[in-house]
Nucleic acid binder design. Structure first.
Lengths: 150, 150
DNA sequence: CTTAAAGTGGGGAAATGTGGTTAAAAAGTG
DNA sequence: CACTTTTTAACCACATTTCCCCACTTTAAG
């Protein structure tokens, strides 16, 4: 179970050092198996253990090809995926320029544990998400939250 | 049952000393089990015994991933959670810089018992919250308060 | 007033993160 | 096809941070 938000920095080569805490969590789920880094339409990146990503990817690929919206989601989610065979000896992974650009990643990025996977956000993007979450409490209860009491 | 508001101070390292009274209350509910500290969209933090948080977290994770509002709530509530395995030998917990920033915590913070959990607020945030509660009495009775007589 | 418990702050060791350097591979060119 | 040049990936060493524990100060209770 991946959880928690950490602020990290991309170095000059575009490498992202995964904190030891999250590295251990990844290792306990994925072992030495590869990871998948892909783009999310909301301008963040998704980091999955390959085994967890495959069934999701397969479902996505089965979505109808002749619905424009389905097809473009498919393109972003599946088309952008990068396989990470292993982290380097210092526990870092390389984020390709294309993915960095997609998520507007600069020096400081946020790594967010979401249970089955991690999300990687730019500072500005994550700030926007927090604002959206606040707005989501106005008006109707969003779907899925009707029975939840904090 | 957690109750009452206490004013506390974060030390220079971002550590929060839980008062002995609340520490005992936590221990009687959670025992030696871990605690969970997470962010609330309204810019406070939530402190739950892990056992009480898990069912809530699981419900949240089941909310739809392709509804923007649900997804951003999910991101904040689940993505921000930090597991506190144990308090240090002086009964303190470390609030990560990310969570401190989220709730705008400075030196003085307020710890508010809310039955099943505690909320942690900045002074300014708590003041704002009290103002909002006053406004909530204008106009219609808020949902859930129709049958309550004080 | 004495004693014990709780709160506060600081110091040090170990683990973690950062940047640079070297070696290998791939791509491009004559 | 061979050689050169550029890019990519792995490794190593230093700097930094984090966490844990100890000691002091303060507050409350007997």
């Amino acid at each position: 179970m991946f959880a928690g938000t950490v602020s990290l920095t991309l170095d000059a080569k575009g490498r992202l050092a995964i904190p030891a805490r999250h590295r251990d969590a990844l290792a306990s789920v994925a072992g030495d198996a590869p990871l998948v880094l892909t783009a999310h339409p909301q301008r963040c990146l998704l980091l999955y253990p390959l085994a967890a990503w495959e069934p999701i990817r397969d479902k996505i690929l089965q979505a109808p090809s002749f619905d424009a919206r389905s097809q473009s989601l498919k393109r972003v989610l599946v088309g952008s995926q990068q396989i990470i065979d292993a982290l380097d000896s210092a526990g870092r992974l390389l984020v390709t320029p294309e993915l960095r650009e997609h998520a507007n990643l600069e020096k400081t990025v946020l790594m967010v544990g979401m249970g089955s996977h991690f999300e990687i956000w730019s500072e500005a993007g994550w700030k926007r998400q927090n604002d959206l979450a606040l707005e989501a409490l106005q008006g109707d209860t969003p779907p899925g939250f009707e029975d939840i009491s904090l």
